[in-house]
């Protein structure tokens, strides 16, 4: 069933995308746009092909950094959600600080972190964790509190321990929200890693982007953008796949009548 519907649903967006690229190509040819202002898709593709070894090396570097930051961010996010959920008062005490960290622009925070922690990997990881942990922590925290009241009542009536309530009810009930947060974080992490590399790195797609834009190599800039978008899409897809594998108890494709409510 799933396999039959998927191509038809994908057809329209793919057609739009192809149409857009063709229009772009036609405009560049028709109006003879200078390649340093807007390169044609064909010249971007050629640039990517010719620069493939370097691009893939840079992409690999960025990917590893993003995965490290993402992993740490998720770990911190889950830990924070559990801490806030289990120990009353911690949430009220710490939320102002956390909200503040989320409101400082990355562009301002990055240079500060470099001043404090140097040009190594540490300031980049700190930046990534600050960006990545928040969506995970906040959505998981909401999920932990939203467990079905009648299941909670059942567990307290049979005298389940706090740990049993957490493991049997709250953690599984929070999984859909956790994955909502994870999908957000997965795409944020790519943006954040590019900013981190932009600010101070000798490798990575972010660094490549800086070099190309300083040299007015617009085709190179677009090549980097395509890599970044592809990476973000891949991260999102991976998170969505993990969600599908982890949450198998929901009745297939029918409204969430019995199981968890839809996110």
């Amino acid at each position: 069933m799933d396999n039959n519907i998927w191509p038809r649903r994908a057809l329209l967006p793919v057609l739009t995308l192809v149409g857009f690229v063709l229009l772009w190509q036609a405009c560049c040819a028709l109006f003879k746009v200078d390649p340093w202002i807007l390169p044609a898709p064909s010249s971007i593709a050629r640039n990517m092909w010719e620069d493939a070894p370097r691009l893939s090396g840079q992409l690999w570097f960025t990917l590893r950094l993003a995965l490290k930051g993402l992993g740490l961010g998720i770990a911190f996010g889950v830990a924070a959600a559990l801490l806030f959920h289990l120990i009353p008062g911690v949430r009220a005490a710490l939320s102002p600080l956390i909200i503040i960290t989320q409101n400082i622009p990355l562009i301002a925070l990055g240079p500060l972190l470099i001043v404090w922690f140097g040009f190594g990997i540490l300031p980049k990881l700190i930046l990534l964790v600050l960006v990545c942990f928040f969506p995970v922590a906040w959505s998981m925290l909401a999920g932990l509190g939203q467990a079905e009241p009648h299941l909670r009542e059942y567990l307290s009536m049979i005298g389940a321990t706090r740990w049993e309530v957490l493991r049997r009810l709250e953690l599984p009930a929070s999984l859909p929200s956790f994955f909502t947060g994870l999908k957000m974080t997965a795409t944020y992490s790519v943006t954040a890693v590019i900013v981190a590399e932009w600010l101070g790195a000798s490798d990575g797609i972010g660094h490549y982007l800086v070099l190309k834009s300083k040299g007015y190599d617009t085709a190179g800039v677009f090549s980097a953008i395509i890599c970044i978008v592809a990476l973000a899409l891949a991260f999102y897809g991976l998170a969505a796949l993990l969600e599908k594998l982890a949450i198998r108890w929901r009745p297939a494709r029918r409204g969430a009548a019995q199981g968890g409510r839809g996110a």
């Binding site: 009648h150 299941l151 009542e153 009536m157 049979i158 005298g159 599984p172 019995q258 199981g259 968890g260």
Partner: peptide, 26 residues
């Protein structure tokens, strides 16, 4: 707590546990 067994009005089975798992975990 912990001296009675309980059957509520709604079946209150955990949707993420198998039927057997619901019983054995209790």
């Amino acid at each position: 707590r912990g001296h009675i067994s309980y059957m509520p009005q709604q079946a209150s089975l955990f949707p993420w546990m198998s039927v057997a798992g619901n019983i054995s975990s209790a």
